[in-house]
Design a binder for these strands. Structure first.
Lengths: 343, 343
DNA sequence: TTGTATGCGTTATCAC
DNA sequence: GTGATAACGCATACAA
């Protein structure tokens, strides 16, 4: 039996048994030495040498099966091209690393099927937990989440009764910050370029826009609202449509990518920013600082949300019995050149 | 024995044995039904029902241990905030998906330790293969790569004798494209803002710049060269230093992030682009199109490199015996507003 | 079709 | 300190 083992073809990867046999000890001893626990000086020496000779590399899959943990965390986001997710990812990674977890990122491409597939694939214990930031949440999602054998933390608006750890942005507060700022600086016709309205953030920002207008005593005007998705190209096209039919004195955009597109359209049309039209974006990503002029933007605290999500995950990993928790992050406004003038 | 199994605490995740016991069949039959192979109508029904009742979810780790494959591919990049990597990632993902592999992304943060750790962690068979796009390659890397039990494909300049599948960009050809274009449009003092010169791309682009100047008959001037890293902020600072001491009529930047920074600095300094100073970036990312004016940029074929890398990986997965291969992707120049004027 | 038995590579338990 | 041996959860060769 053990002789048979040794006859395996030479190029088959070395296992503990290979090492043990070569060192002339039991696999138990070999395993112990390889893990740095116990062993007489002589045993240690021989096992080490044998391992080096055959280029032994432990099989993490086997180890995980036994340990019932992989030390891996997954983050699934819709669009990894959006800097806001990069920011969130960095924050999560930092927290995870401190607890000795490695972070894996997966881009779902806003494709609900992709997310479900991910849940049913990765979450089948390839990773110890997963953090999800979906653009949409359907019933399919929810039941898939419920079936997940590993803990799931959702970043985004979740139904109130959904039994998952949840970190939310304050869309309403954030939008209000932007509209108040624009109203305070004398803007009367504040347009809104939204992302896809059938997404969680899209829907939230739309209702928040109307509410904010009311709050500052401005009328809602249909022609001042335009819709694209959350990408640059669509945002720019939407801004073009808007400018072709209306003359806003300010534009609020549902994210920085859209804002960058609107800025491009404004400048290309010979409009001065902020003198003719003030511009405010959302998410406060690197993009806002990279544009010229720099774009004012409302941060929904992506990094903070990431940090919180990671914390929730880590604590749940330690204590799975915890009741579902919900955190909300406060928004902040950073005023830059694109809205720095008072009319 | 099998009775003992059934006494496990109720909240422990269901396994095949749970399902088999509940359905009153052997675990072999249960496994078969669960995998859709064979089984009498009655058996299938009972197993399916049992599985549904206990919410059975297969344990991918266990399955992988037995199958000796995970269906996962990993991509490790230095800076996921750089759009060029996003582009590469998308291309890889598309190829991988078609072959039923899921792609996981890991950001190493240009930290050589991080990359090594990744290799020694993930590559221990959590994934079936990994694609690496490192900024630097030291001997440590090379030996770590050699030890990897799973195939590795490197995107980037690898030593000629390194026995790994390798996809390269043509930095020299790309830089030449940019310099020739600028020279052709009448520019005489073409500055260069490089990224970190101790990285593979940084070093390659530097020597390519000098060679290209010679090729178009322009002198190399020390004061026209500035160095940062490959990020926006550093690029912008480098451009500021450059402009403080020299008067170039064109700036070539080692990537689009740097170019965006330089553009910002130029505009902030009241210089007109392209009339006063022409600007050309590299990588041809979305950023080049998002700036105003849009930035001319040399594409090093990130998507194509990604596609090729994925192809190499997939073919090697099918046939591990393949000899190491090397592919090189041709560069292309896209001229935009930032260099559209001939002096 | 079905069940028995074995192995995937590792660690943990428990005697010695 | 060391060595059998039993898990971890699943899939399959083989016999029935």
């Amino acid at each position: 039996m053990s002789r048979k083992r040794l006859q395996k073809s030479a190029d088959a990867p070395a296992t503990v048994r290979t090492v043990a046999a070569l060192a002339g000890v039991s696999i138990a001893s070999a395993s112990r030495v390889l893990n740095g626990i116990g062993g007489s000086t002589e045993t240690v020496r021989r096992v080490r040498e044998a391992a080096a000779r055959v280029g032994y590399v432990p099989n993490a899959i086997a180890r995980s099966l036994q340990a019932r943990r992989t030390g891996l965390l997954a983050l699934a986001v819709a669009d990894i091209g959006n800097p806001v997710y990069v920011e969130m990812m960095r924050a999560i990674e930092e927290v995870a690393k401190r607890a000795d977890y490695q972070l894996l990122v997966h881009a779902t491409g806003a494709d609900p099927e992709g997310e479900t597939a991910l849940l049913e694939g990765l979450a089948r214990r390839y990773v110890d937990g997963m953090i999800l930031s979906p653009l949409r949440i359907g019933d399919g999602h929810l039941t898939a989440l419920g079936r997940s054998p590993v803990p799931v933390t959702v970043v985004g608006q979740l139904p109130d009764d959904a039994p998952f750890d949840n970190v939310r942005a304050d869309s309403h507060g954030g939008v209000l910050l932007a509209i108040e700022h624009l109203a305070d600086t004398g803007r009367k016709r504040i347009a809104f370029v939204n992302g896809a309205p059938d997404t969680l953030p899209g829907a939230a920002r739309m209702t928040a826009y109307r509410a904010a207008l009311t709050a500052v005593g401005l009328p809602y005007e249909e022609e001042l609202v335009e819709i694209g998705d959350f990408q640059y190209a669509q945002g720019r096209a939407a801004a073009a449509r808007l400018l072709a039919r209306a003359r806003p004195d300010a534009i609020f955009c549902a994210n920085d990518l859209i804002a960058a597109g609107a800025l491009h359209e404004l400048l290309a049309g010979g409009l001065r920013v902020p003198q003719d039209v003030a511009l405010v974006g959302m998410d406060d990503t690197a993009l806002a600082e990279m544009s010229f002029p720099q774009i004012s933007s409302v941060s929904l605290g992506a990094a903070e949300r990431g940090r919180l999500a990671a914390d929730l995950m880590l604590s749940r990993l330690e204590n799975p019995q915890l009741a579902p928790r919900r955190e909300t992050v406060a928004p902040t406004l950073t005023v830059r050149a694109s809205s720095e003038v008072t009319l």
